[in-house]
Design a protein around this nucleic acid. Structure first.
Length: 206
DNA sequence: TGCCAGGCCCTCTTTAGGGCCTT
């Protein structure tokens, strides 16, 4: 598959529309079945980190105050990601913050997000939960560090993506799993998924 | 004062409601 960028945000809350801001971003590049590069940074958006969020993420107000400005970090991570297609776990969340933080520096997203959670719901329906941590345990993914820190979660999402790609190759007898195919599968109906993927591939098998 | 998201997905649905998932 072409190189993809798996990203993860830590934030002050759930909605940029309500004033929540990013406190940390990580992006890892996945190429030829492995992580080949990493970017990680705390960022200072001048916002208050609540005790709940500090307890959840381990990111304190002092850590954010010492971090580089959010605009500087977003410029750097946007350059790092470049034009690679994007992946995130529950991508609707990260996509909202990605777009909102980019808009603040007058930049725009150029590629679509694929969502490892939506893919897991279709391809790993027997998992007891589709939370990132639960899927890591279910699929026996390698440990990557403290849950709810950006780099650890981005790397874990990358390992989950590689696991999902292996499931797709095995189940649908596909040699190369493109980002475009991931986007098609995540939008396909759960029932009739096999028929849908076969139609996408024109019925050709490797 | 109290409350505040948003998209997906399933079902006891479709003129709706509630759980899941992200921080």
């Amino acid at each position: 598959m072409e190189t993809v960028a798996v990203i993860d945000f830590e934030t002050t809350g759930l909605s940029p529309a309500l004033g929540d801001r990013a406190t940390e971003i990580a992006a890892v590049l996945v190429q030829d079945g492995q992580i080949v590069d990493r970017y990680e940074s705390l960022m200072n958006a001048g916002v208050y980190v609540s005790p709940f969020i500090e307890s959840l993420t381990g990111i304190s107000n002092a850590m954010v105050r010492r971090a580089p400005p959010a605009a500087q970090v977003m410029e750097a991570v946007a350059d790092f990601v470049g034009d690679h297609p994007l992946v995130a776990h529950n991508a609707s969340f990260d996509c909202r913050f990605w777009d909102a933080e980019l808009q603040r520096i007058d930049r725009r997203r150029s590629r679509a997000f694929a969502c490892s959670m939506r893919l897991a719901r279709r391809l790993l329906p027997r998992a007891p939960s589709h939370k990132l941590g639960a899927l890591a345990e279910y699929a026996d993914l390698p440990a990557t560090g403290r849950h709810h820190r950006a780099l650890a979660d981005a790397e874990l999402s990358a390992h989950l993506l590689l696991h999902i790609e292996a499931v797709i190759r095995r189940r649908f007898r596909i040699r190369e799993v493109s980002h475009a195919l991931l986007c098609e599968i995540q939008c396909a109906p759960q029932r009739g998924l096999d028929r849908c993927v076969k139609n996408l591939r024109g019925g050709a098998e490797t």
